[in-house]
Design a protein around this nucleic acid. Sequence first.
DNA 1: ATTCTGACTGACTGGACAGTCAGTCGGGGC
DNA 2: GCCCCGACTGACTGTCCAGTCAGTCAGAAT
Lengths: 213, 213
Amino acid sequence: MDKAERRLELLRAARDVFATKGYHAAKVDDIVARASVAKGTFYLYFPDKRSVFVELVDGLFSRLGAAILTVDTQGDIEAQIKHNIRGIVAVLLDDPALTQLLLSFAPGLDPAFAAKIRSFYDGVKTLLRMSLDEGQRLGIVAEGDTSMYATFTVGALKEIFTESTDRGQAWPREQLVEQIFRLLQRGYLRIDRALDPPVSVPPAPRKTRKKSA
Amino acid sequence: MDKAERRLELLRAARDVFATKGYHAAKVDDIVARASVAKGTFYLYFPDKRSVFVELVDGLFSRLGAAILTVDTQGDIEAQIKHNIRGIVAVLLDDPALTQLLLSFAPGLDPAFAAKIRSFYDGVKTLLRMSLDEGQRLGIVAEGDTSMYATFTVGALKEIFTESTDRGQAWPREQLVEQIFRLLQRGYLRIDRALDPPVSVPPAPRKTRKKSA
DNA sequence: ATTCTGACTGACTGGACAGTCAGTCGGGGC
DNA sequence: GCCCCGACTGACTGTCCAGTCAGTCAGAAT
C-alpha cells in the first residue's frame, strides 16, 4: 500500500465517521480504528483533525461546482436545466455520507470554517440569482425578487437532499430530478413563455407599511 | 432576586451564548459569566448543560406550534394562511438568538437529541402535507406529490429564516410575510380556483395568465 | 444572641481527547 | 550481514472543561 492509497483510506474512514457522528463527536481514535492504523499514522498524513474535514468538504464543493454549467439561453433550456439538476443529484447521492456532512455541518466550529461554508452557499445563490435575472430579461422567469427565489430554491434543495440522505434513500434518482424540475417550473420558471413577448408586471404587493420613526 | 428570576436569567444567558458560539463551543463558564453567578449556581438550577439547551429548544417548539392554526376551509383561506405565516415569522424573529440555534442546531449531538429535532420537523411536514391534501381535494392546491411540496416548503422557509437571522435582519417583517405567501401561491397554491369546480390539471402548462375573475 | 437554612461560591477532580515522540520493523542498498 | 530509511506504532502528555462539594454568609427563626 503506497502513500496515496493510505491517505485515501484515511479520508474515506474520516468521511464515514464524520457522517455518522458529526464533526465534534468524531474522535481521531475512531477514524484510525476504522482505517486500521495507529493514531500516529493519521498525523503523518494530516496536520490535524480539522484539515481532514476541510479537505473532505472542499472536495464535495468543487465536484458540485463542476457539475453546474451555465445555461446557454440559445439551446434547449429545459434540457440544460435538467442536466444541471441531474449533475447535482448525482454528485450528492453518490456520496451520501459526505452530503450529510455538508448539509448538516456543525455550526459553532471556529467562525472561519462556518464562514467558508456560508460563502459557498452565497456563491451558489449569487450564481442562481444571476441566471434568474437573465431569465427574467428573456421572459422565462416570473417577475419577482430573484434573490429570494434563489434563497427559496437553495433551501428547498437542501431539505430535499437532507431527506433523501437521512432516511433510507426515499426517492429514486430520476424521479427526484423530474420532481425538482417540476417544482422549479411551477414555482417560477415559465419556459413556455420564452416565445411570447415579455408580459407586463402584475400589480406589486401593497406596501402600506411606513417607516415608523 | 428570587429563584424563578435567577433561573430565567440563566436561561437567557445560555440562549445568548449558545446562539453566538453554538452548543459545543459554549462553555458553562461562559454562561455563568454572562449571568454573573458562580459555576455552582448553574447546577442548582439545571442538572447539566444539555438540559438547558433542551429546555430552550422545547420552548421555541411549543411557541411555534401554538402559532400555527389549522386552516378552516370555509373561511377566508388567504387571510388564514397569511395569519399563520405572520405568526411563525413573529415567533422566530422575536427571538433571533433561539431561532438561529434551532435552525442550525449541531448535529452529532447524542442521537436522541437529533431525533427530537427531526421529529419536530416531521410533525410540521405531516401537518402541512395533510393541509395540502385537503387543499387538493378542494382544488386550491395544484396536483402533485404533496409530501414533496411540504419538504420543499419547509426547506425554503428554513433557508429564508436562516438568512434573515444570520445576516443583519435583511427583510422587514411584513414584507417577509408577503413574499413568502406569494412564493407559496405561485409555487403551488391556486387560490383563485377555489370558486370553480375542481379542475383537472391541464396537461401542458400553457396558461395565458390574465387577470381572471 | 444564637442557631438554622438555603442560596451561593469557586477551587478542585476526573475523564476525555488532540496531538507527540521515542521506539519497532521490514526491506532495499552496499 | 549490516546499516539505513522511512513507514508505522501506541503509550504518554498537556489541556480543556463538565460537574462536584466543602465552605461562606445573609437573613429568618427561636
